[in-house]
Nucleic acid binder design. Structure first.
Length: 282
DNA sequence: CGGACAACCTGGCGGC
DNA sequence: TGCCGCCAGGTTGTCC
Protein backbone atom coordinates (compact mmCIF):
# COMPACT_ATOMS: atom_id res chain seq x y z
CA UNK A 1 0.00 0.00 0.00
CA UNK A 2 1.88 2.92 1.26
CA UNK A 3 4.42 4.83 -0.75
CA UNK A 4 6.85 7.43 0.47
CA UNK A 5 4.23 10.06 1.52
CA UNK A 6 2.20 7.51 3.46
CA UNK A 7 5.25 6.05 5.19
CA UNK A 8 6.59 9.51 5.98
CA UNK A 9 3.22 10.43 7.49
CA UNK A 10 3.26 7.32 9.65
CA UNK A 11 6.81 8.07 10.80
CA UNK A 12 5.85 11.62 11.74
CA UNK A 13 2.86 10.27 13.61
CA UNK A 14 4.88 7.69 15.52
CA UNK A 15 7.82 9.89 16.39
CA UNK A 16 6.39 12.08 19.18
CA UNK A 17 4.76 9.10 20.86
CA UNK A 18 7.71 6.74 20.64
CA UNK A 19 10.83 8.82 21.21
CA UNK A 20 11.99 8.27 24.76
CA UNK A 21 9.69 5.30 25.24
CA UNK A 22 11.00 1.87 26.13
CA UNK A 23 9.78 -1.28 24.36
CA UNK A 24 8.97 -4.14 26.71
CA UNK A 25 8.88 -6.88 24.08
CA UNK A 26 7.30 -8.20 20.91
CA UNK A 27 4.20 -10.35 21.30
CA UNK A 28 2.74 -12.43 18.48
CA UNK A 29 -0.66 -14.12 18.73
CA UNK A 30 0.10 -17.79 19.38
CA UNK A 31 -1.95 -19.02 16.44
CA UNK A 32 0.01 -16.78 14.12
CA UNK A 33 3.55 -17.58 15.20
CA UNK A 34 3.87 -20.45 12.79
CA UNK A 35 2.30 -18.58 9.91
CA UNK A 36 4.34 -15.48 10.60
CA UNK A 37 7.66 -16.96 9.62
CA UNK A 38 7.73 -15.00 6.40
CA UNK A 39 6.90 -11.75 8.18
CA UNK A 40 10.05 -11.82 10.33
CA UNK A 41 13.72 -12.16 9.49
CA UNK A 42 14.36 -13.93 12.81
CA UNK A 43 12.42 -16.24 15.10
CA UNK A 44 9.66 -14.59 17.10
CA UNK A 45 11.54 -15.20 20.37
CA UNK A 46 14.61 -13.57 18.88
CA UNK A 47 12.65 -10.45 17.94
CA UNK A 48 11.22 -10.33 21.44
CA UNK A 49 14.67 -10.65 22.99
CA UNK A 50 16.17 -8.01 20.70
CA UNK A 51 13.60 -5.31 21.51
CA UNK A 52 12.90 -6.05 25.16
CA UNK A 53 13.77 -3.16 27.49
CA UNK A 54 15.21 -1.17 24.60
CA UNK A 55 14.75 2.60 24.65
CA UNK A 56 13.60 4.10 21.33
CA UNK A 57 16.15 6.71 20.33
CA UNK A 58 14.89 7.71 16.89
CA UNK A 59 12.13 6.98 14.36
CA UNK A 60 13.07 7.48 10.75
CA UNK A 61 12.07 6.61 7.20
CA UNK A 62 14.28 5.11 4.50
CA UNK A 63 12.49 4.48 1.20
CA UNK A 64 9.23 2.77 2.26
CA UNK A 65 10.75 1.37 5.45
CA UNK A 66 9.93 2.65 8.93
CA UNK A 67 13.03 2.46 11.12
CA UNK A 68 12.92 2.25 14.88
CA UNK A 69 16.41 2.96 16.17
CA UNK A 70 16.67 1.28 19.55
CA UNK A 71 19.63 1.50 21.89
CA UNK A 72 21.07 -1.84 20.79
CA UNK A 73 18.98 -2.80 17.78
CA UNK A 74 17.20 -1.48 14.71
CA UNK A 75 13.69 -2.55 13.70
CA UNK A 76 12.65 -2.00 10.07
CA UNK A 77 8.96 -2.28 9.18
CA UNK A 78 7.67 -2.45 5.61
CA UNK A 79 3.89 -2.04 5.41
CA UNK A 80 3.66 -3.41 1.85
CA UNK A 81 -0.01 -3.24 0.80
CA UNK A 82 -2.11 -3.43 3.95
CA UNK A 83 0.17 -2.95 6.96
CA UNK A 84 -0.72 -0.48 9.70
CA UNK A 85 1.13 0.82 12.74
CA UNK A 86 -0.73 2.50 15.58
CA UNK A 87 -0.40 3.24 19.27
CA UNK A 88 -3.11 2.71 21.86
CA UNK A 89 -3.38 2.38 25.62
CA UNK A 90 -2.81 -1.22 26.68
CA UNK A 91 -5.97 -3.24 26.23
CA UNK A 92 -7.89 -0.67 24.21
CA UNK A 93 -9.48 -2.31 21.19
CA UNK A 94 -9.38 -0.90 17.64
CA UNK A 95 -10.89 -1.97 14.30
CA UNK A 96 -7.43 -2.65 12.91
CA UNK A 97 -6.87 -5.31 15.58
CA UNK A 98 -8.83 -7.71 13.38
CA UNK A 99 -5.56 -8.27 11.54
CA UNK A 100 -3.19 -7.79 14.46
CA UNK A 101 0.17 -9.47 13.90
CA UNK A 102 2.52 -8.02 16.49
CA UNK A 103 2.07 -6.08 19.72
CA UNK A 104 4.98 -4.11 21.15
CA UNK A 105 4.11 -3.21 24.76
CA UNK A 106 5.63 0.09 25.88
CA UNK A 107 6.79 0.94 29.37
CA UNK A 108 4.43 3.92 29.59
CA UNK A 109 1.22 1.88 29.51
CA UNK A 110 0.68 2.01 25.76
CA UNK A 111 1.23 -0.46 22.94
CA UNK A 112 2.62 -0.14 19.44
CA UNK A 113 0.65 -2.50 17.21
CA UNK A 114 1.31 -3.84 13.74
CA UNK A 115 -1.67 -5.15 11.83
CA UNK A 116 -1.69 -6.43 8.28
CA UNK A 117 -4.68 -8.01 6.53
CA UNK A 118 -2.83 -9.35 3.53
CA UNK A 119 0.30 -10.40 5.40
CA UNK A 120 2.78 -9.06 2.87
CA UNK A 121 4.26 -6.75 5.51
CA UNK A 122 7.72 -7.36 6.89
CA UNK A 123 9.38 -6.70 10.24
CA UNK A 124 13.12 -7.02 10.30
CA UNK A 125 15.40 -6.66 13.31
CA UNK A 126 19.17 -6.40 13.44
CA UNK A 127 21.97 -5.11 15.63
CA UNK A 128 22.43 -2.26 13.15
CA UNK A 129 21.05 -0.96 9.87
CA UNK A 130 23.88 -2.64 7.97
CA UNK A 131 22.58 -5.30 5.60
CA UNK A 132 19.08 -5.04 7.08
CA UNK A 133 17.58 -3.44 3.95
CA UNK A 134 17.95 -4.27 0.28
CA UNK A 135 19.88 -2.00 -2.07
CA UNK A 136 17.94 1.25 -2.36
CA UNK A 137 18.28 4.21 -4.67
CA UNK A 138 18.55 7.85 -3.57
CA UNK A 139 15.91 9.55 -1.45
CA UNK A 140 14.03 11.77 -3.93
CA UNK A 141 13.44 14.51 -1.36
CA UNK A 142 17.08 14.68 -0.23
CA UNK A 143 19.34 17.51 -1.39
CA UNK A 144 21.62 14.92 -2.95
CA UNK A 145 18.89 14.02 -5.44
CA UNK A 146 19.68 16.72 -7.99
CA UNK A 147 18.71 17.11 -11.63
CA UNK A 148 22.26 16.12 -12.49
CA UNK A 149 22.03 12.99 -10.37
CA UNK A 150 18.79 11.99 -12.07
CA UNK A 151 20.27 12.69 -15.49
CA UNK A 152 23.27 10.50 -14.74
CA UNK A 153 21.02 7.70 -13.51
CA UNK A 154 18.77 7.82 -16.56
CA UNK A 155 21.64 7.62 -19.02
CA UNK A 156 22.00 4.20 -20.61
CA UNK A 157 18.75 2.93 -19.14
CA UNK A 158 16.78 1.53 -22.02
CA UNK A 159 13.69 0.44 -20.14
CA UNK A 160 10.24 1.98 -19.88
CA UNK A 161 10.35 5.13 -17.76
CA UNK A 162 7.50 4.32 -15.40
CA UNK A 163 8.89 0.87 -14.63
CA UNK A 164 12.17 2.52 -13.71
CA UNK A 165 10.45 4.99 -11.37
CA UNK A 166 8.94 2.02 -9.55
CA UNK A 167 12.34 0.34 -9.19
CA UNK A 168 13.39 0.99 -5.57
CA UNK A 169 17.04 0.56 -6.43
CA UNK A 170 16.71 3.39 -8.96
CA UNK A 171 14.84 5.94 -6.79
CA UNK A 172 13.50 5.02 -3.37
CA UNK A 173 9.92 5.51 -2.26
CA UNK A 174 7.90 6.01 -5.44
CA UNK A 175 5.00 3.60 -5.98
CA UNK A 176 2.23 3.24 -8.51
CA UNK A 177 0.21 6.27 -7.47
CA UNK A 178 2.97 8.83 -7.24
CA UNK A 179 4.68 7.50 -10.37
CA UNK A 180 1.54 8.31 -12.37
CA UNK A 181 1.11 11.66 -10.62
CA UNK A 182 4.75 12.62 -11.20
CA UNK A 183 4.60 11.79 -14.89
CA UNK A 184 1.47 13.87 -15.33
CA UNK A 185 3.01 16.87 -13.60
CA UNK A 186 6.07 16.46 -15.82
CA UNK A 187 3.96 16.04 -18.96
CA UNK A 188 5.75 12.83 -19.90
CA UNK A 189 4.14 9.66 -21.24
CA UNK A 190 4.67 6.67 -18.91
CA UNK A 191 5.91 4.41 -21.71
CA UNK A 192 8.71 6.71 -22.86
CA UNK A 193 12.13 5.05 -22.97
CA UNK A 194 14.13 6.16 -19.94
CA UNK A 195 17.09 7.30 -22.02
CA UNK A 196 14.98 9.27 -24.49
CA UNK A 197 14.27 12.26 -22.24
CA UNK A 198 15.61 15.67 -23.21
CA UNK A 199 17.48 17.76 -20.65
CA UNK A 200 14.38 19.85 -20.20
CA UNK A 201 12.22 16.80 -19.61
CA UNK A 202 14.64 15.44 -17.03
CA UNK A 203 14.47 18.73 -15.17
CA UNK A 204 10.68 18.64 -15.38
CA UNK A 205 10.58 15.09 -14.10
CA UNK A 206 12.89 15.87 -11.22
CA UNK A 207 10.68 18.72 -10.05
CA UNK A 208 7.52 16.70 -10.67
CA UNK A 209 8.64 13.78 -8.51
CA UNK A 210 9.36 16.13 -5.64
CA UNK A 211 6.11 18.01 -6.09
CA UNK A 212 4.01 14.85 -6.22
CA UNK A 213 5.66 13.39 -3.12
CA UNK A 214 5.59 16.65 -1.16
CA UNK A 215 1.93 17.14 -2.02
CA UNK A 216 1.26 13.59 -0.85
CA UNK A 217 2.93 14.37 2.48
CA UNK A 218 1.05 17.65 2.74
CA UNK A 219 -2.24 15.73 2.41
CA UNK A 220 -1.05 13.11 4.89
CA UNK A 221 -1.07 10.25 2.43
CA UNK A 222 -3.64 8.54 0.22
CA UNK A 223 -6.31 6.36 1.83
CA UNK A 224 -7.59 4.55 -1.23
CA UNK A 225 -8.05 1.28 0.54
CA UNK A 226 -6.10 0.28 3.63
CA UNK A 227 -3.78 3.10 4.53
CA UNK A 228 -4.47 4.94 7.78
CA UNK A 229 -2.49 7.43 9.78
CA UNK A 230 -1.15 6.45 13.19
CA UNK A 231 -4.27 7.88 14.85
CA UNK A 232 -6.50 5.75 12.62
CA UNK A 233 -7.76 8.57 10.43
CA UNK A 234 -7.58 8.63 6.64
CA UNK A 235 -5.22 10.77 4.61
CA UNK A 236 -6.62 13.22 2.05
CA UNK A 237 -4.19 12.78 -0.83
CA UNK A 238 -6.72 10.69 -2.78
CA UNK A 239 -8.94 13.77 -3.03
CA UNK A 240 -6.21 15.59 -4.97
CA UNK A 241 -5.07 13.04 -7.54
CA UNK A 242 -4.47 14.43 -10.99
CA UNK A 243 -4.71 11.17 -12.93
CA UNK A 244 -4.63 8.18 -10.57
CA UNK A 245 -8.04 6.59 -9.93
CA UNK A 246 -9.97 3.33 -9.99
CA UNK A 247 -11.62 3.21 -13.45
CA UNK A 248 -14.30 0.82 -12.17
CA UNK A 249 -15.73 3.19 -9.59
CA UNK A 250 -14.66 6.49 -11.10
CA UNK A 251 -15.52 6.30 -14.77
CA UNK A 252 -15.20 9.94 -15.73
CA UNK A 253 -11.82 11.03 -14.42
CA UNK A 254 -10.62 14.05 -16.38
CA UNK A 255 -7.34 15.85 -16.70
CA UNK A 256 -7.23 18.81 -14.30
CA UNK A 257 -5.31 20.80 -16.91
CA UNK A 258 -7.21 20.23 -20.17
CA UNK A 259 -10.34 18.30 -19.11
CA UNK A 260 -9.53 15.42 -21.45
CA UNK A 261 -10.68 11.99 -20.16
CA UNK A 262 -7.83 10.16 -18.43
CA UNK A 263 -6.68 7.00 -20.20
CA UNK A 264 -5.88 3.78 -18.29
CA UNK A 265 -3.39 1.28 -19.70
CA UNK A 266 -1.05 -1.36 -18.29
CA UNK A 267 2.64 -0.66 -18.00
CA UNK A 268 4.81 -3.34 -16.51
CA UNK A 269 1.70 -5.15 -15.22
CA UNK A 270 0.59 -2.08 -13.28
CA UNK A 271 -2.52 -0.01 -13.85
CA UNK A 272 -1.33 3.26 -15.36
CA UNK A 273 -3.27 6.48 -15.75
CA UNK A 274 -2.33 9.44 -17.93
CA UNK A 275 -3.63 12.34 -20.00
CA UNK A 276 -3.23 11.66 -23.74
CA UNK A 277 -3.02 15.40 -24.47
CA UNK A 278 -0.68 16.58 -21.70
CA UNK A 279 1.46 13.43 -21.89
CA UNK A 280 1.76 12.69 -25.60
CA UNK A 281 3.38 9.46 -26.77
CA UNK A 282 6.63 9.97 -28.61
C1' DC B 1 19.71 -5.46 -18.78
C1' DG B 2 14.83 -5.87 -19.56
C1' DG B 3 10.31 -7.69 -19.93
C1' DA B 4 6.67 -11.02 -18.70
C1' DC B 5 4.76 -13.58 -15.21
C1' DA B 6 3.94 -16.12 -11.01
C1' DA B 7 3.99 -15.95 -6.07
C1' DC B 8 3.11 -14.22 -1.68
C1' DC B 9 -2.18 -13.41 0.82
C1' DT B 10 -6.69 -11.59 1.66
C1' DG B 11 -10.47 -8.35 1.35
C1' DG B 12 -13.52 -5.49 -1.18
C1' DC B 13 -16.13 -4.24 -4.83
C1' DG B 14 -18.42 -4.30 -9.47
C1' DG B 15 -21.38 -7.00 -11.97
C1' DC B 16 -24.76 -10.31 -12.67
C1' DT C 1 -29.15 -10.71 -1.23
C1' DG C 2 -25.64 -13.89 -2.82
C1' DC C 3 -21.90 -15.47 -5.35
C1' DC C 4 -18.07 -15.00 -8.72
C1' DG C 5 -14.18 -13.06 -10.60
C1' DC C 6 -11.18 -9.48 -10.75
C1' DC C 7 -8.37 -6.00 -8.81
C1' DA C 8 -5.32 -3.97 -5.34
C1' DG C 9 -0.77 1.24 -2.88
C1' DG C 10 4.67 -3.82 -3.09
C1' DT C 11 8.52 -6.80 -3.84
C1' DT C 12 11.10 -10.85 -5.29
C1' DG C 13 12.45 -14.70 -7.95
C1' DT C 14 12.44 -17.22 -12.33
C1' DC C 15 12.54 -17.75 -17.13
C1' DC C 16 13.39 -16.15 -21.81
Amino acid sequence: MPELPEVETVVRGLRPSLIGQTIRGAVLPAVLEQRSRRMLNVAAEELNAAVSDQPILAVERRAKYILLHLQEAVVAVHLKMTGRLYILPTGEVADSDRYLRITFPLAGGQELRFSDARRFGRVYVGASIDRLLPILGPEPLDDAFTVEALRAQLANRHGVLKALLLDQSFVAGIGNIYADESLHIAGIHPKRAADSLSDGEIEQLHGAIRQALNDGIKWQGASIRWYRQVDGTKGQSQDHFRVYHDPRSEKDKRCPVCDTPIVTIRVGQRGTHFCPICQPAL
